[in-house]
Amino acid sequence: MATSSAAIIKAAKDNDLRERFIALAAEQGIDNPHGFIDSKLQQLASAKVGAGEDTIASVYEYADAIYNQELSKLTPPGKNPAAVTDEHIRYALNVLRSE
């Protein structure tokens, strides 16, 4: 899979991924893992992940697309009338008004 510059940038800016890079660099005994990773984030994001064409950024981009598809299926609690019903709100309002 071809890796776009946008995918490389997005993967390189993901702090959770950066922390994982640092942890695994430390595990491998790399001196100053924070400095090493921070100086190579773009290179790491564009690095291949196996014998094929996939890179960190391309597999990240795929996972991000799946995540966003699933996230789009969710309704935030405040907008979800099945979570906080109108009856809940009416009851709470009546309680406050009667105080």
Rank of each mutant, 00 (worst) to 15 (best):
A2Y: 01
A2W: 00
T3R: 01
S4I: 04
S4T: 14
S5Q: 13
S5E: 05
A6N: 13
A7C: 05
I8K: 15
I9W: 10
A11V: 04
A11Q: 11
A12I: 02
A12P: 00
K13C: 10
K13V: 04
K13F: 04
N15D: 11
N15E: 15
D16K: 14
L17E: 07
L17F: 10
L17V: 07
R18V: 04
R18A: 04
E19C: 05
R20T: 13
R20M: 12
F21K: 07
I22T: 04
A23V: 08
A23E: 13
L24R: 13
A25P: 07
A26L: 11
E27L: 12
E27R: 15
Q28P: 00
Q28T: 05
Q28N: 14
G29A: 11
D31V: 02
D31K: 09
D31A: 06
P33N: 12
P33M: 08
P33H: 12
H34R: 06
H34K: 07
H34V: 03
G35T: 02
F36V: 02
F36K: 07
F36I: 02
D38Q: 07
D38V: 01
S39F: 00
S39E: 03
L41Y: 09
Q42K: 12
Q42W: 03
L44Y: 10
L44K: 07
A45G: 13
A47H: 09
G50S: 04
G50Q: 02
A51C: 00
G52K: 10
G52H: 06
D54K: 05
D54F: 03
T55P: 03
T55M: 10
I56H: 01
V59Y: 11
V59L: 12
Y60E: 03
E61C: 05
Y62C: 01
A63R: 05
A63T: 05
D64E: 15
A65K: 09
A65H: 06
I66P: 06
I66M: 10
I66H: 08
Y67C: 02
Y67Q: 07
E70I: 14
E70Q: 15
S72F: 08
T75K: 02
T75I: 03
P76Y: 07
P76G: 06
G78P: 03
G78N: 14
K79W: 11
N80V: 02
A82M: 09
A83H: 09
T85C: 13
D86R: 06
Y91E: 09
Y91N: 13
Y91K: 14
L93P: 01
N94D: 08
V95Y: 15
V95K: 15
V95L: 11
R97D: 08
R97K: 14
